[in-house]
């Protein structure tokens, strides 16, 4: 169980003079639900973007299932301005800068903080399109319907996914016409369609009430079991985080300030300080 699926080492993301993520090192083991929490602007989404190839980190490396998928060290002007640590450690490593689709192909799927469904497409097509990456057909066989069998299989799988998410009744509706909670669900369904091993959820419960949040937690547990997933999520709802995650990482101003089980985190004075601030008279 302790096998690393995702491993971040000294990941630093510096935009000009701003260090958004500062020497972040963490591990996510197979079959775990790990949460990344922190106050607003702590750099959580930036960390996600570094993992998924949206940003190229300034320094550090990310490995997935033991293989380095992202690596970099400060170059050019950044060499002088770099404010993080351990830059010499990665100098000998060849920078790896994949595009997001390459990362997804490896088996890391993500959802977005602000929902990014394909607006003009139906619910069904949203999920079906995500299956495009794993399809073996090429543009010729797809156009002339030579690969019709594969297309049929993709449609059946999409239908099964929608059934499981209770979205079948909406399948011909526009994705954006769904209620907010269901749009979040659809985004997860779409991510699942890419057949991931690791699922990155960026604030899956944002904008949900306590009951919906509880349901979402159950749902995450469910898909984790069914698809043998590892889940790494950013979340603000503490009840969700505390109840469902195995381990928690806390970052503030880009720096890791605490890690541990939910009980440990709740008792950690540094975390309380980061969230509530310190009062002068103490």
């Amino acid at each position: 169980m302790s096998e690393n699926v995702l491993r971040l080492e000294d990941v630093t993301m510096q935009f000009g003079g701003v260090v958004a993520v500062n020497n972040l090192s963490l591990e996510v083991n197979r079959g775990e639900i790990v949460a990344l929490i922190g106050p607003n602007g702590a750099g959580k989404t930036t960390a996600f973007n570094c993992i998924t190839g949206v940003y190229e980190p300034t320094n550090g490396q990310v490995s997935f299932e033991g293989k380095v998928i992202v690596a970099n060290h400060p170059t050019g002007k950044m060499k002088k301005n770099y404010q993080g640590l351990n830059s010499e450690k990665y100098l000998h490593i060849k920078p790896v800068d994949p595009t997001p689709d390459q990362i997804t192909k490896l088996g890391i799927a993500r959802t977005f903080q602000n929902i990014r469904l394909w607006k003009s497409m139906t619910v069904f097509d949203n999920v079906l399109t995500a299956k495009h990456m794993r399809a073996k057909q090429n543009v010729f066989t797809a156009t002339f319907r030579i690969s019709a069998a594969e297309e049929r299989r993709m449609r059946e799988e999409t239908m099964a996914l929608l059934e499981e998410q209770n979205l079948v009744q909406f399948k011909d509706d526009l994705a954006t016409s769904l209620p907010y909670g269901l749009q979040r669900r659809l985004e997860i369904a779409r991510a699942l369609a890419t057949e991931p091993k690791l699922l990155l959820l960026d604030e899956p419960a944002a904008g949900m009430n306590p009951q919906e949040t509880e349901e979402l937690g159950q749902f995450i547990m469910q898909i984790k079991e069914k698809y043998d997933l590892t889940i790494f999520m950013i979340e603000h709802h503490m009840d969700l985080v505390m109840k469902f995650s195995d381990r928690i990482y806390v970052i503030d101003f880009g720096k890791l300030i605490a890690k541990g089980t939910p009980a440990e985190i709740q008792a950690n004075p540094k975390v309380i300080e980061a969230y509530l601030g310190v009062t002068d008279d103490e």
């Binding site: 497409m121 797809a142 297309e151």
Partner: peptide
Amino acid sequence: SSYGRAFKAIRDDEIAAEAMG
């Protein structure tokens, strides 16, 4: 076809399309 859907996905949201492979 599947490629046409991928084209539409790029039109609707490039970032999401890229994240979906």
